[in-house]
Amino acid sequence: MPTKPTGTLYRGKTGMWAWVLHRITGVAIFFFLLVHVLDTALVRLSPEAYNEVIATYKTPVIGFAELGLVAAVLYHGLNGVRVILIDFWSKGSKYQVAMFWIVIALAVTTLAIFAPRHIANVLSHMSEGGH
């Protein structure tokens, strides 16, 4: 008896999700990079123009969004090392799942060290009324 087709959606496991996350974080960082080159270019226009625009980076909403940006950069960079190890280390593909969890652990730890400090800076800037 013929069995029902199971569909064509690829269901990878850890490796696929690591790849998906690498792409998503890459695209996010790319678009931020475009904005960041432009906002930094304002230093050439005038100190006031630069200071005015950079002040938005210190607001609570954008300040919290920066945590997401830092998380994306951490994941993308660390997972990039994992990708290189899979390509060049003879045991890379054997340990790719373990390496994914090491990447997550390192990213989470670094973010846990960075976040309280960054949030404190953003909140104290707000309570001082910004400028």
Binding site: Y50, N51, I54, E66, V70, V73, G80, H118, N121, V122
Partner: peptide, 27 residues
């Protein structure tokens, strides 16, 4: 990618982690 890990992580460390972080960034 390998070079960018050093450059970008260093950039984030100096600009966002040391001193007053984002608060201190201006012209």
């Amino acid at each position: 990618g390998v070079i960018l890990i050093v450059l970008v992580f260093g950039h984030l460390y100096i600009n966002l982690f040391t001193g007053e972080g984002i608060k201190a960034i201006d012209f």
